[in-house]
Amino acid sequence: MAEAILEVNNLKKHFPVKGGLFNKQQEVVKAVDGLSFNVRKGETLGLVGESGCGKSTTGRVLLRLLNATEGEVLFEGQDIHSLNKKELRSLRREMQMIFQDPYASLNPRMKVGDIIGEPLEIHGLAKGREKKRIVKDLLDKVGLVPDYISRYPHEFSGGQRQRIGIARALAVDPKVIVCDEPVSALDVSVQAQVINLMKDLQKELELTYIFIAHDLSVVRHISDRVAVMYLGRIVELADKNKLYEDPKHPYTKALLSAIPVADPEVKREKIILEGDVPSPINPPSGCTFHTRCPFAEEICKREVPEFAEQEEEHFVACHLVD
């Protein structure tokens, strides 16, 4: 088994909600509330959940685009939340991000060459002709014509823009890339192209991906292991085949059964959850899923279930599983 490149221990991110007339801190959004997991070198860890579960915040705290409230993120053994400004800047060369919205994540006033070349400039890696050469190589690598260097983002389609975003992330030769819903804004036929490209690049450049998405079929396709999040916590984490074929947590079960399958012959028994995801401002006590869980018992309301290894490499946070 590959070694862990990223180790996350009891990571929390709480946002204060300013409220009331006197701007007093009254409430706290517990966007991420105690995550512990490892990411192994060269793997793709999928992070799935519904909106508001904290998966995007997790991605940003992993990169320290947001500061953690509590807990640590160890990148190759070093806690990135203890780095000073300068050290943090060099960390940016190791860990990169691909964003969700290919329209919003590229500066509309910059040419493609400047967008992809920016990280090279920031880190003083290349200038002038050398920079141009590297940018052209990167464009080629992500399947775009190198001559596009002097065009503006709006001249490209969504899929092509996402390729530009990928090229920008690759410019500093990172080890880890956090991908925040990288294909959810794309047309179905283009999604597949981008997913294939990301898989190829991973193999070629030995990248480690943290793949954040709400689309469970895409996550299954690209990931090695998958973590399911609900209200700021991971409820289940396992190898993807184990997780999809033998889900243990009732939420994972419901989530999997809710996905519409593109096959009219398949008629499954659906577990339809009642109600909505509760607000992370005052999350339910105990197991946060108990308000929607069809199997909830008394203990679920009182005690937070431990995120325990139920089977080998299969972690579940549920009182009812053993």
Binding site: V188, S189, V190, Q191, A192, Q193, I195, N196, K199, L216, S217, V218, R220, H221, N241, Y244, L256, I259, V261, A262
Partner: peptide, 16 residues
């Protein structure tokens, strides 16, 4: 071009 939830295909076949 859509990933199947069941079959663990290695490569998607996108429309070009």
């Amino acid at each position: 071009s859509i990933p199947k939830l069941k079959a663990d295909t290695n490569r998607l076949e996108p429309i070009k």
